[in-house]
């Protein structure tokens, strides 16, 4: 007998016959679409978790990137809008770069799939303007650019918008730990600096 059959057999006999009655899940909580997104709340939550927030008009994204990463080397996903990047940064497009190469750059600029106001979360789904997971992981500075209309109110709203079959990374502030006396300390293994640029 395979372990698969063994385990499934154990579970079936554990549940016995008749099976426990089916359960109706009460979903009386706020479902997707119940709450209007509040960009100011999003900004407040991001700031509370030590992310730096920039709000600007779309044409000004390059200026913000210049302020944050000017003069430094930046990895970008292949599909990132090039007008977001100022001349002052040394752009390294990700073309299956070796890990060591990605680790050596100063920063990364990406878009996002969706963002959650209530929790101050940005979600990356590996789309062409977000790239492979590794490029937002190894550089120490992550600049994430998103439109205000990508901000949704709640976690249910965000889950309803993303595709489970893509690799998803939910990011809420810079890398942090609560492992020392249960105090939150920012800056462990992931990017220690998270900049979120919200365009109108």
């Amino acid at each position: 007998m395979s372990s698969r059959d063994l385990i499934l057999g154990r579970l079936r006999s554990a549940l016995g016959e008749p099976r426990p009655a089916p359960v109706e899940v009460p979903r009386d909580y706020r479902p997707a679409g119940a709450v209007a997104a509040d960009v100011d709340l999003f900004v407040d939550r991001l700031t509370d978790y030590r992310a730096t927030v920039h709000r600007c008009a779309t044409p000004d994204v390059a200026r913000v990137v210049d302020d944050v990463l000017g003069g430094r080397q930046v990895v970008v996903p292949a599909g990132l809008p090039r007008h977001w990047l100022p001349d002052s940064v040394d752009v390294l497009p990700d073309d299956d770069l070796p890990t060591g190469r990605v680790a050596a750059v100063d920063g990364v600029v990406t878009a996002a799939a969706v963002a959650v106001a209530e929790t101050g979360t940005i979600v990356l789904d590996g789309g062409p303007d977000q790239g492979r997971r590794v490029i937002t992981l190894l550089p120490d500075v992550h600049v994430c650019v998103l439109r205000a209309d990508q901000v949704v109110a709640t976690v249910p709203d965000a889950l309803a918008r993303v595709d489970p079959h893509r690799p998803l990374t939910w990011i809420s502030g810079p890398s942090a730990t609560s492992d020392i006396e249960l105090n939150r300390v920012e800056g462990v293994h992931g990017p220690r600096h998270l900049h979120v640029v919200i365009t109108a």
Partner: peptide, 27 residues
Amino acid sequence: RDLEVFLQLLPRASTGERMNPYTSMWT
């Protein structure tokens, strides 16, 4: 869809954060 419940419950009950810094999902 069930994740929408647990991703709200877990961080707040666990580390006392609105959301933990990173959640990874892969299929």
